[in-house]
Design a protein around this nucleic acid. Structure first.
Lengths: 338, 338
DNA sequence: GAGTCGAGGTTATACGTATGACTTGGAGGC
DNA sequence: GCCTCCAAGTCATACGTATAACCTCGACTC
């Protein structure tokens, strides 16, 4: 270990200030009113500053029995979306004196691993986004307070859930495209077994089938630009009348679809309309800018953290899904040929 | 607190297995060879499993004097790049029994805050990417083993550094564009006071000025699509001969530049060539696909973590910058008008 | 049959902190 | 002049773990 000497402890500070260790703890813990005089308190604070004292968190956590640390589990870090979720959660956490530890799922981190092995820091609770069932049971087995993000509220886990109102987003997309006159749809679905994607498929089917004369085909693709490119190209090359509107499960898929459409010599939105879901930076980087559903990732993170705090304090988390909003841009227009 | 009862401790396990607490610690810590019989060891393991025992990390950390936890500080989480860095670092860390805690800089997390307040988990060391000087002094004051990513090796901090060979990437970009015949350049520079961007500016100037008859203008923009759009539009509207090649400090800036070029009615690469730096997913999402410098973010993270482990063990970290590679795609071509 | 030795444990302790219980030295009341 | 009481501290302890030091008992040596 390269640590020059050993870290100063509260006892070192006490000695330097000529008081007991208890007094140091009292002063630094801001519990000294009526127990320590203002002058000694100042002397302690000065000694602590001089020595560069920082309390040993392990010891404090042990003594207190909690860590004020929380684990945020996300499916992958490679999207802006979860970065936003983290930001929101960390903001709320900081306001309450909590820290947030991030645990991206093990994709590419070798064999499936125990989230808790990675987060060596002891935890007070967990916020988990759609994740593998085995990891979930590990968490449940640990009896840790848990909040699930974007998960089936009727799931048997009995954990609190915080969800985006994805179904409403899909309703807005469907209404927008139907209003424009579209009747032949292609649903580019994420090839990921997660509740949030099931909702998209279910709600889209429900909305479109409610209107007579509509047809919906579905193509599945992994969430990557190349995957979406391949899947879309194949789907559009299928014989029969070409869809006039392409509903994508998220923006990244839409970006891949753009490339497929271009490759086939078609134009957006003249020949085919495209919609996404997320409203990442990517949505306005591509040409034309993407009509998509804006998800407020930071608010999502904030609500998740607030829910966890509620659970920790024995309160009931705030109910209600988080509203989402359709953002109409240049990738949607009325179909050219009826 | 919603925790049903209190967590089982090693003493509970000991009682259940009919042995002493020490024996439990020995068995579970895998240090029992020749000290505990195989049958008792199995009995202990079974009791631990039945009770759902998990060691209290705070107590262990306190006892051991280290946490096997590391803090990764990144400027912001909103880019794929640092997600890759994290992934690489976490992989190496996991191989060595370490965990990684992420600390995105405080942008939007309220007033500038102490990284350590957020990372309530006690830390063994820090990997820090280009960051504010005040945060750095806080770290140094703490005497924590430190590895800096993408920072001036001659900096006075005396910390180990791990750098990408950005200068070589710029050399490759310059050589590529000069080979194509370009002589009038616009450098779209990130408006961020960081060593890694200084290197780009310095090296680009050095390379281009070495060739007679070249001219270089510089425009500054914040790293965002809109910022780049505005700055590029203004720069290209300037009177005088138009640049034929646009060198951007990163891919996001290039994506913004694309929009500016389109808005001015110009085509890429026919009227103007554009290069980026990073090779994010964005680079192939835009049309035409971007010629850019590929940075291996995961390798960067791995090397960073390896360096920190070396420091922790008193070894000298591996020297040498991480190689980068120019990826030529459709956004560069010879200039149309000489 | 006394001595040795190792297998298979146990006991005791320290890590650094927070806090409830105790102490002390005066100031003030009557 | 004795009692009370409060301000300003101090003392002692517990949190759960890992490990060094100690103990015990049976097998084996000579």
């Amino acid at each position: 270990m390269a640590r020059s000497s050993t870290r100063p402890t509260s006892r070192d500070v006490a000695q330097a200030a000529g008081v007991s260790q208890a007094a140091v703890s009292l002063v630094l813990g801001d519990k000294w009113r009526g127990r320590v005089s203002e002058t000694t308190a100042e002397r302690v604070r000065e000694a602590a500053r001089d020595l560069g004292y920082r309390p040993n968190l392990a010891a404090r956590n042990l003594r207190l029995g909690h860590t004020r640390t929380v684990l945020l589990v996300v499916p992958a870090l490679t999207t802006e979306f979860f970065a936003g979720v983290y930001t929101g959660a960390a903001r709320v956490a900081a306001d309450h004196g909590f820290g947030v530890v991030l645990y991206p799922s093990p994709e590419g981190i070798g064999p499936a691993r125990d989230p808790f092995a990675s987060a060596q820091a002891a935890l007070d609770g967990v916020i988990a986004s759609s994740m593998a069932a085995d990891a979930l049971t590990a968490i449940r087995g640990d009896q840790l307070p848990l909040v699930m993000l974007d998960s089936d509220p009727s799931g048997s886990l009995g954990a609190a859930t915080v969800n985006l109102d994805i179904a409403d987003g899909i309703r807005q997309v469907a209404a927008h495209l139907l209003d424009l006159g579209h009747r032949r749809f292609l649903h580019l679905a994420a090839d990921v077994p997660s509740w949030t994607f099931e909702v998209r498929a279910r709600e889209l089917a429900a909305q479109l089938h409610a209107v007579p004369g509509t047809s919906v085909r579905t193509a599945h693709a992994p969430i990557s630009i190349d995957g979406a490119l391949t899947a879309t190209e194949a789907a559009l090359a299928t014989p029969g009348p070409r869809p006039t509107a392409l509903v994508c499960d998220d923006d990244k898929l839409a970006a891949g679809a753009y490339k497929a459409v271009r490759r086939l010599g078609l134009r957006i939105p003249d020949d085919i309309s495209v919609t996404g879901l997320d409203d990442l930076g990517l949505a306005t980087a591509i040409d034309p800018e993407l009509t998509t559903v804006r998800l407020d990732a930071e608010l999502f993170g904030e609500r998740g953290m607030e829910a966890l705090l509620a659970v920790l304090e024995g309160r009931t988390p705030q109910a209600g899904d988080i509203p989402v909003e359709l953002v109409v841009r240049g990738s949607t227009a009325p179909p050219s040929t009826p």
